[in-house]
Design a protein around this nucleic acid. Structure first.
Length: 210
DNA sequence: ACATTAAGTGATT
DNA sequence: AATCACTTAATGT
């Protein structure tokens, strides 16, 4: 299972580092829809996604959610790095979007490698950078796009990370990830359907053209 | 057949 | 774009 990881990083990470990762990291398969990190909890290992996608969510004081971004193959959670280095608790929730394979690196190793391997520092910094950029993109979406545009972007992203032209979600679930109401989502989806972009069914949205 | 849950809609703010 | 109040449709028991 690590072969894929090796393949992806053979140019980027030193062979010795890859060997250590293989020796020390635990690989795990996790089914879709599982909670990986909960808000307010400590994180004791750093996950690197081998395959599949993880969604990262923020929550407000009422318990309403907002989707921040997806983590895909080869990416890692910036929050973990944040937590480990600052020894603080998670500010986000992470849930598997699809079935996921990941490798877990214990945090003490990750600190050790920071000193030992320059390629590791590079990797950690790059992923931090990537996450920050994604965050900015989603801030832009929330601030500058109207709800209908956000919804369209959401549908596109969903179908992309799932590699599926059908989205199996209720309007309510979509609404809460976009932090709006179910009624609004239903109405906008209906408009999209009338324009011939999608096809609506119970618990299922089929994407025709985007 | 009935209950439950998802989705559609007009009216109001 | 949010909320309310209500209807209609789909699905489970």
């Amino acid at each position: 299972m690590l072969d894929q990881l090796k393949e992806n990083y053979k140019g980027v990470l030193e062979p010795e580092l890859l060997a250590e990762m293989e020796a020390i990291g635990t690989t795990k398969k996790i089914e879709q829809g599982n909670l990986l990190i909960e808000i307010g909890t400590m994180v004791r290992s750093m996950p690197i996604v081998i395959s599949g996608a993880i969604k990262v969510l923020r929550e407000d004081e009422n318990g309403d959610e907002l989707l921040l971004y997806f983590l895909e193959e080869g990416e890692t959670c910036a929050m973990t790095i944040n937590c480990c280095l600052g020894n603080s608790k998670s500010e986000i929730r992470a849930v598997t979007e699809t079935d996921v394979e990941l490798i877990l690196i214990p945090i003490y190793k990750m600190e050790e490698w920071m000193g030992k391997y320059q390629s590791w520092r590079r990797f950690v910094l790059d992923s931090y950078h990537g996450r920050l950029n994604e965050l900015l993109t989603t801030i832009d979406k929330i601030a500058f796009l109207k709800m209908d545009e956000r919804l369209l972007a959401y549908l596109k992203e969903k179908s992309e990370v799932n590699n599926e032209l059908e989205i199996f979600q209720t309007h309510q679930e979509i609404a809460s990830e976009l932090h709006t109401s179910r009624v609004v989502v239903s109405r906008l989806l209906k408009k999209l359907e009338n324009k011939g972009h999608i096809e609506l069914h119970r618990n299922r949205i089929k994407i025709l053209d985007v």
